[in-house]
Computed example of a mutant assay.
Amino acid sequence: MGNTKLIGATPNDWLWASERMRWRRVYAGRADQVRAAREFAEALFTGMPCVDIVALAVGELAANAVRHTRSGEEADGWFGLEVVCHNPAYIAVTDMGGHGIPTVLPEGYGGSYSEGGRGLRMLYELALMFGVHGSSPLGHTVWVDIDLNRKLEGGTQSPAQLVS
């Protein structure tokens, strides 16, 4: 934790020191690894109001990486997960790139029976900020900022600010 002196500090002081807690993990580009990534993130946010939103975000972003990019197509494919426990929490998944640009579809796109395209829209609605950076040849990172105090079943809030 850098140069922070916490001798004699309480466990809560140590846990919530001013430096952000950041984790990065790499997963094989397989569907079973989506669950592993989601469970890892859930464990980090256990007991926090936002735990269900964090799990949803990791699951959706990781599943998209495996389904829609070279991460899930190539034998040595991978996706990366970055989690920052701060307020707001930062959740990002990096993929190997592929066939397009991750896009938040307009509300109501494809009708109520559409099988795809609603996941990023849902995260956009739940997040404080939402963004994508990178390129199809080199890979994208899709990220969200989530209010630590927001519950999945909580009331409505303004949609995220879209950043690229």
Rank of each mutant, 00 (worst) to 15 (best):
Ser135Thr: 08
Asp32Gly: 07
His86Glu: 12
Leu56Met: 08
Ile53Val: 14
Val93Pro: 02
Ala92Leu: 03
His140Gly: 01
Glu74Phe: 00
Leu105Thr: 05
Leu61Glu: 11
Ala36Arg: 05
Pro88Phe: 10
Gln33Leu: 03
Gly110Arg: 00
Gly8Cys: 09
Val142Thr: 13
Ser112Tyr: 05
Arg30Pro: 02
Cys85Gly: 10
Thr4Gln: 04
Asp52Pro: 00
Arg22Asn: 05
Tyr113Asn: 07
Leu126Gly: 12
Arg22Gln: 14
Met1Leu: 09
Leu126Cys: 10
Gly97Gln: 04
Thr141Trp: 01
Gly139Glu: 01
Val163Gln: 10
Ala9Asn: 01
Val34Gln: 10
Met21Arg: 15
Gly155Ala: 13
Met21Asp: 13
Ala62Phe: 04
Val93Tyr: 02
Leu120Thr: 01
Thr4Ala: 08
Glu42Pro: 03
Tyr90Gly: 02
Ile91His: 10
His68Ile: 02
Val142Ser: 06
Gly134Gln: 05
Asn12Met: 11
His133Thr: 05
Glu42Ile: 04
Gly98Gln: 07
Ala17Lys: 09
Ala43Ser: 15
Leu105Gln: 13
Met96Ile: 02
Val54His: 04
Glu39Trp: 08
Glu60Arg: 06
Ala57Cys: 11
Pro159Val: 05
Ser136Phe: 03
Asp147Phe: 01
Lys151Pro: 03
Asn87Cys: 07
Thr103Arg: 04
Ile101His: 12
Val34Arg: 08
Ala36Asn: 11
Arg25Phe: 13
Met129Lys: 11
Ala28Arg: 11
Trp23Phe: 14
Ala43Trp: 06
Ala36Pro: 07
Lys151Phe: 12
Leu120Arg: 08
Gly2Val: 10
Glu107Arg: 09
Gln157Pro: 04
Val84Ile: 15
Val58His: 10
Pro102Lys: 07
Val58Gly: 09
Asn3Thr: 12
Thr156Phe: 13
Ala28Tyr: 15
Pro106Glu: 01
Leu126Val: 01
Val84Lys: 05
Thr94Val: 07
Leu56His: 07
Pro102Cys: 05
Leu162Thr: 13
Gly97Thr: 00
Leu148Arg: 15
Asp147Val: 02
Asp76Glu: 10
Pro88Trp: 10
Val132Ile: 05
Ala89Arg: 05
Lys5Gly: 14
Pro11Phe: 14
Gly72Asn: 06
Met21Gly: 06
Glu82Gln: 14
Gly139Val: 00
Ser136Ala: 14
Asp76Gly: 13
Trp23Glu: 06
Leu105His: 07
Tyr27Ala: 01
Met21Lys: 15
Trp14Glu: 06
Trp143Cys: 01
Glu125Thr: 11
Ser136Ile: 02
Leu81His: 07
Gly117Met: 07
Val58Phe: 15
Gly155Arg: 12
Ser18Pro: 12
Phe130Met: 03
Ile146Trp: 03
Thr10Arg: 09
His133Trp: 00
Trp14Arg: 10
Leu128Val: 09
Glu115Ala: 15
Gly117Asn: 11
Pro159Ser: 14
Gly29Trp: 14
Phe45Tyr: 11
Gly119Cys: 13
Met129Phe: 11
Ala127Trp: 03
Asp76Arg: 15
Met122Thr: 07
Ala36Tyr: 00
Leu15Phe: 05
Arg35Leu: 04
